[in-house]
Design a protein around this nucleic acid. Sequence first.
DNA 1: TTCATTAGTTCTGTTTTTATGAACTATTAA
DNA 2: TTAATAGTTCATAAAAACAGAACTAATGAA
Lengths: 113, 113
Amino acid sequence: MHALSDPVRVAIFAEIAGASCPQTCSNFVNIAEKSIPKSTLSQHFKALREAGLIRGERHGVEMRNVSRCPEIDKRFPGLIAAIVKAHKIQQAEEGRASNRRKREAGGRKSRRK
Amino acid sequence: MHALSDPVRVAIFAEIAGASCPQTCSNFVNIAEKSIPKSTLSQHFKALREAGLIRGERHGVEMRNVSRCPEIDKRFPGLIAAIVKAHKIQQAEEGRASNRRKREAGGRKSRRK
DNA sequence: TTCATTAGTTCTGTTTTTATGAACTATTAA
DNA sequence: TTAATAGTTCATAAAAACAGAACTAATGAA
């Protein structure tokens, strides 16, 4: 139903909307903790495109994706900013959580002295 | 994995976080286009509770749910505001879309004169 | 042209998540 | 006790996401 009903797509969209240059599909292979196969990414990009949230332009062998912010912001003023903001904050916390996990995983052996 | 990875839960959480008084499970039966069974809602509330996003307090026969905004905002400053804002904007549009659908559904027979 | 390479797509089966009816628990009130 | 209301748990069905394999598209050699 709606393209932003999946957290991976929200992450992708927030990234594209917040970026200053077009993003390719491959840029997102390592966006999560473990790498996402390109077939999976391609499906997400397709959903975002079909929802009219991003647009893809082929440049040679690669597909550059840009968000359709101007159009979207016209209809839902502030929505993109709100999504990007919420996502950035959550991302920051995920980073901290991830570091914590790494520290604790190490701690099983070395129990910080 | 994370409690806000589902749009229904985001809607519920945004509603609770934005409300000025505790919300019961039953308040959400008609939050979507078609009514959501209470077993489904109960599962979502459980997920939100286990994630520490809301807290339920029993008052007589009903369970009053409040968001844990103060704690959350301390860790993710601005996150709740961002979520609530994004959700409100999307909701407003869904309302417009819904009205449009209703108009057009009527239009199949009566083709506005 | 043909072959190789890179980027992405489509197909298809598997796994994960969500949705939901039915049976159950908890609280209150008659 | 019985009834009524609010919510939970359980089992399973339905829907969505994931991912490997085979495919298409553009480019650049040889």
